[in-house]
Amino acid sequence: MSLDKATVARIARLARIRVEDEQLEPLRRELNNILGWVEQLGEVDTAGVEPMTSVTPMTLRTRVDAVTDGGYPEKVVANAPDGVEHFFAVPKVIE
């Protein structure tokens, strides 16, 4: 599978990274180079093999469904580039 420029532009959009038009071609070559290399995994017989989702066999712990944290909004927003009181501020989303 080889990427074309349109696909690279689509990936960049999905990843929310602005890529200038003139960067698309070099980026396409780089990504194809890496993807071409990882495609060797196709030669491994994985019939009947379970995909690994956890390196240590474990079941996730559960706990009582109760509020155990919080109550410090000023800490939550302390690092916000832009904020109003205890809110994060972003450019207008709804017209």
Binding site: M1, T7, I11, I17, L31, I34, T46, P51, M52
Partner: peptide, 27 residues
């Protein structure tokens, strides 16, 4: 570069060929 590779291998249509196969080989 890594974010974009990751975005691609997880995207619809390529997930099984890349990500799922990699998880199986990891096993």
């Amino acid at each position: 570069r890594r974010i974009m590779i990751g975005t691609y291998v997880l995207s619809a249509g390529y997930y099984d060929a890349y990500y799922l196969q990699a998880q199986k080989v990891r096993t």
